[in-house]
Design a protein around this nucleic acid. Structure first.
Lengths: 333, 333
DNA sequence: CAGGAATAGGAAAACGATTTCCTAACGAAA
DNA sequence: TTTCGTTAGGAAATCGTTTTCCTATTCCTG
């Protein structure tokens, strides 16, 4: 690998000059600039990014912190971030945390140490530790899928979970459902999770329907908890005609439970999902669900982040559009 | 952030000495070692990895090159690699290539430039460009899911695709199926893809069954192609009683096709998948499939790689165990 | 035409580590 | 007692860049 010195020697100039034509950091006469350019070309020279990082205290690395890469929801986000980042010359350092605070912090330290240019952060709930890290290290960050008021003043890209859940519920109510269950995400530490139940409850209230706590099951976004929740809710003497699940994976679990109880969907039971991940399409019946543009959230997160990194663009809060995609799992009573 | 100089000053020694206690690279008297250790502790000093990388020409980064992070098969691999790497103090640089040679090479260049310690590489087929890159750059590499004879002498971790497909086919034959279709992966450039058809064909031959080319459909591992392939095969006048798909995603697509044609699975048609990704469990009927321990492949890849990076361990070819996991999509005639 | 501003380009310091090279001190052997 | 080998630790070079500081030239302007 050739270095800047080789280029300088070949072009008959000093390394400073080479650096200047490389970064356009100071005017260089066009004849010597040409000589340098030719030398660069001839040697196939590429500036060493490690050395660059050392002096600039800023690398071309973007950290993506997520709970679980093996979950289609998060992997879609990562794909979005990667695509946008690649376009702008950044690479992705993948930080898989299992949703564990300690691991999150550990990875943040690694990112700081590597002079990461910024980080896209997705966590169930933003903690003080997170916020103070970003404040102190001055590392640009954008929170993905996090309500604006919990980001500690940092940028965010998300959808309006409250409204989405509200509209999902309204969708069911419009189809004459009056008895509606809800399988939620963890309520203690998931911020968008509580927003979704609240949107659900509000829609009930606004339509004069009583909220029945025995039809609310607190899951953890995994298949298993959707299944268990479904069993719990559907085995009661009086059961709902529709169940809204806070994500697709739980909805799919619920589908299994319904099948096990011989409750055909959508004839006997309507099921509404949330997210529109791959599985919504492959399951039978296909899932009617609320699409969250998760890949786009990734892209916009990266875009916003890079804006802050390079342009000193203002911090901002983006809310992307969601939509109800109708497939086969809901019907009017 | 404190530097090695700060530590040296506080401990009243030279930076060389600090470096020595840090790396155990030369003996240091125990009293001065203690002073250094105390200083390190007091300052909360952590050596700067970028500076380290610059002089050592080796970072703590492992590149993971895959076609598509948003595919559960690849994301499971990445998870395996990440877990093992994290344990050993390495971080993951994610390289999503879309299966495109140009992007693969581009990412390899980035990895070289960043002094990546090694790379886990998963591609449809190893090309000359790949091999020569690894030879020239001397970057340690392990190929995941690649047959030994195509790795150009580098390490690999995989399963025996030929035998797995052979056994899968035998499984069907043992259940009295004599008319068996096959939906394959791309045959032109996927090495494990052709191995699987070949295992299939061989099992047919060994059991005195004729291979019928009209029941072979060349897909591309995606849902859509499984669906199309299913339609193509099942709409013929004479149709097979079982179809073996080269991966789960296509098997799920095929399930849709069968449903559309009112062919109940497994009563009228047995479907056998391959991989055992998440979707095998969530689909109805649940998929009988050949489990490829993909997360373990990731782990072992990382393990092997780190062995080569650190210990100069010999190159090796690992074949992990697969198994047929019986669920609901196959039955005896 | 003299003097000061502007300009181009080089030398050297800096980033934060590792490692080579050197020296002082010590101990053992002759 | 002299000498030589060993040892611990410091000074300085190095990795490959960027950037500051400085100097020599050119160009105006009065």
């Amino acid at each position: 690998m050739s270095t800047i010195k080789d280029v300088a020697r070949l072009a008959g100039v000093s390394v400073s000059t080479v650096s200047r034509v490389l970064n356009n950091s100071k005017p260089v006469n066009s004849d010597v600039r040409d000589r340098v350019l030719i030398a660069i070309d001839e040697l196939g020279y590429r500036p060493n990014s490690v050395a660059r990082t050392l002096v600039n205290k800023k690398s071309q690395l973007i950290g993506v912190v997520i709970p679980d890469i093996d979950n289609p929801f998060f992997s879609a986000l990562v794909r979005g971030v990667e695509e946008e980042a690649k376009k702008k010359g950044y690479s992705i350092l993948l930080c898989n945390t299992g949703g564990d605070l300690e691991q999150e912090i550990q990875y943040l330290d690694i990112l700081k140490e590597k002079y990461a240019a910024g980080v896209v952060f997705l966590t169930a709930r933003v903690q003080d530790e997170h916020v103070s890290f970003f404040r102190e290290s001055k590392t640009p960050v954008v929170f993905a899928c996090q309500p604006e008021n919990l980001t500690g003043g940092f940028s965010s890209v998300a959808i309006d979970d409250f409204r989405a859940a509200y509209e999902g519920t309204s969708y069911l109510i419009k189809r004459e459902h009056k008895n509606i269950g809800f399988v939620s995400g963890p309520l203690s530490d998931s911020s968008s999770g509580v927003l979704r139940v609240e949107g659900f409850k509000q829609a009930l209230i606004d339509n004069g329907i009583d909220f029945r706590s025995e039809w609310l099951y607190e899951g953890n976004y995994r298949y298993r908890s959707g299944y268990t929740g479904g069993l719990k809710i559907l085995q009661q003497l009086e059961r709902p005609t529709a169940i809204f699940c806070a994500n697709d994976e739980m909805a799919v679990g619920l589908l299994s439970a319904a099948r096990e109880l011989d409750l055909s969907v959508p004839e006997k039971l309507s099921v509404l999902g949330f997210d529109d991940t791959v599985m919504a399409e492959i399951v039978n019946p296909k899932l009617t669900t609320i699409r969250q543009p998760i890949c786009a959230i990734g892209k916009y997160s990266a875009h916003t982040l890079i804006g802050e990194i390079e342009g000193g663009v203002e911090k901002q809060h983006l809310l992307l559009e969601y939509e109800i995609v109708e497939r086969g799992s809901c019907k009017s009573i």
